Amino acid sequence: LAAYVDRVGSALAAKNGDALAQLLGLTAGCATVELRSMSVEQVGHVCQSKLSRFDADHEASEKAGDEVHDSLRSAEQHLKKGFAMAANGRVPAEHNKQMGTLFIVNQLFKIYFKLNMIHLCRNLIRAVEGPAFPPFERFNKSDKVTYQYYVGRISMFEDQYQKAETCLDYAWKHCHRGKLRNKRMILQFLVPVKLLLGVMPSPKLVADYALEEYTGLTDAIRDGNLRLFTEYLSKYQDKFIQQGVYLLIEKLRLLVLRNLFKKVYLIQQSHQLHLEDFQVALRFATGGDMDMDEIECILTNLIFKGYIKGYMSHTKKILVVSKAQPFPLIVDVSS
Score class of each variant (00 low, 15 high):
D6S: 04
Q107T: 00
L257G: 11
A132Y: 04
G82Y: 09
I104S: 08
L205I: 08
E76I: 07
G25C: 05
F240W: 08
M200I: 09
L302H: 05
N88W: 06
K50S: 11
L190S: 06
I111R: 06
L20A: 04
Y161T: 14
K15V: 04
K173W: 03
E137G: 05
L195P: 10
D208S: 01
S49A: 14
E276F: 13
Q107L: 08
R283A: 10
V321D: 05
Y112G: 12
S234K: 10
D57Q: 14
N106I: 00
L257K: 14
R258Y: 05
Q242S: 06
F54L: 12
W172V: 01
T215I: 03
M156T: 03
F133D: 00
G310D: 02
Y209L: 00
Q22H: 06
Y236W: 10
S61E: 14
V280T: 11
M38E: 03
R36H: 15
L282M: 14
I303R: 03
Q77E: 14
L247W: 01
L282V: 07
G198I: 05
T27F: 08
L35Y: 13
D332P: 04
K263P: 03
F284C: 11
A60F: 11
L108I: 11
K194A: 07
L195G: 07
V33D: 15
K235P: 13
Y161I: 14
Q237P: 07
I104L: 13
R53K: 12
K204M: 10
K97L: 15
L1P: 05
R122T: 04
S155Y: 06
H119K: 15
S71M: 12
V206I: 08
D6W: 05
H176R: 10
Q107R: 14
E212R: 11
A19D: 05
V280C: 08
Q242I: 01
R73N: 11
Q325N: 07
G25K: 11
G29A: 10
V68G: 09
A3S: 07
L329A: 01
L205W: 01
D223E: 04
Y265T: 02
I249D: 01
D66N: 12
L254M: 09
G216I: 04
F284L: 13
A21I: 00
H274A: 11
D57S: 11
K194N: 08
A75F: 02
S37L: 13
Q325D: 00
L233C: 15
N140L: 05
Y214T: 02
D70S: 14
F157T: 03
V320R: 00
Q188M: 09
V105E: 01
